[in-house]
């Protein structure tokens, strides 16, 4: 433990004052003034019985080359670095907390329709029932988010700021859906690289103001991106996509799909999700983006039927 011959006095000191070197080094904490004084008093009075003042300094001082002149660890205890750690430990999202469920998007011949319900769940609790999960970004883009609501709202903040900055030059340049989608995908991929993901699945929908070309793209918490004529996040990927693909299998089908049909299709899918996804809500927001801009609205699931499914083919026992 001790490397040089030490007098008894030092040992006693060690037992009575194993406190941190921080105290000895005064300043930093006003609350330690008392103990600092105590230490000084104690050391001088105690040691002066055997040593000169000059020697006291050399004995309590580290004599080894690597720590010369610093207080000895075996006298004062190891240096307490804790005051340096002023910030909290870094925490990363390990799982989503308050979540939104599916987002649906369908391209049609002169635009895109996107929809998401207004429920935010806390586990199985329908915690908030009036949450807007669609965000208009600029004039021809709507971003819909599933997954963690707080991460979504943070992303909304980023997008708001992005849009404000984009308007500073006041030129004729604007961010449209492809650019917004790329930006979001960069943000999400960079966060996954930091092991601190934004826990969302996001659809970006838009239309080109000049060509009317519809745009629909997906990105999620790992930065995975893809595009398709119809996209859905969460349970929608399992429940709605099969229905949607029946109507818009490819880009050719997109160019034949009218806005009215697309709307009906989304209504139908939202109803299926309302029936089968326990985390879904009866009220949802929708947005249609064409070359003329964004139209938004809110809707409730209509013509619901909760009758016993006995006679419906595919459920229960039946003789064909």
């Amino acid at each position: 433990m001790h490397r040089t011959g030490l007098s008894l006095g030092i040992h006693q000191l060690e037992h009575t004052q194993p406190s941190s070197r921080l105290n000895h080094h005064h300043h930093h904490h006003s609350t330690t003034t008392a103990s600092t004084n105590y230490l000084h008093t104690l050391s001088s009075s105690h040691l002066s019985q055997h040593h000169q003042d000059l020697q006291i300094e050399s004995i309590t001082m580290n004599q080894f080359p690597h720590g010369w002149g610093r207080p000895r660890d075996d006298v004062y205890g190891a240096y307490d670095n804790s005051y340096l750690n002023e910030s909290q430990p870094i925490t990363h999202t390990q799982r989503p907390i308050v979540t939104g469920t599916s987002v649906l998007g369908v391209k049609f011949k002169d635009g895109v329709i996107i929809a998401a319900d207004n429920i935010a769940s806390y586990g199985s609790l329908a915690r908030y029932d009036n949450v807007e999960r669609l965000l208009q970004v600029g004039t021809h883009t709507v971003v819909g988010a599933g997954g963690d609501i707080s991460d979504m709202q943070y992303l909304h903040l980023l997008l708001d700021n992005l849009l404000i900055k984009e308007q500073y030059p006041a030129d004729d340049h604007q961010l449209y859906a492809p650019q917004v989608h790329t930006y979001i995908s960069r943000v999400l991929y960079q966060r996954r690289n930091k092991f601190d993901p934004l826990w969302n699945s996001i659809l970006t929908a838009g239309a080109d103001p000049k060509t009317s070309e519809p745009f629909l793209s997906y990105v999620d918490l790992k930065g995975t991106t893809y595009s398709a004529p119809a996209l859905a996040t969460g349970y929608g990927a399992h429940l709605a996509i099969p229905i949607l693909r029946r109507h818009v299998a490819d880009e050719e089908a997109v160019s034949n799909l009218t806005q009215e049909d697309a709307q009906k299709l989304v209504e139908e899918c939202m109803k299926v999700l309302w029936y089968r996804d326990a985390r879904s809500g009866v009220k949802y927001s929708w947005a249609i983006i064409t070359k003329d801009g964004v139209t938004t609205g809110s809707k409730e699931i209509e013509n619901q039927s909760w009758k016993f499914a006995e006679m419906i083919k595919g459920y229960g026992a039946q003789n064909i």
Binding site: P169, D171, H173, L175, P178, Y183
Partner: peptide
């Protein structure tokens, strides 16, 4: 190009 997949607007890079 990386962040927005957009060729930088000429006026902006000149500014």
């Amino acid at each position: 190009r990386l962040l927005y997949k957009r060729p930088v607007p000429v006026a902006r890079v000149v500014n």
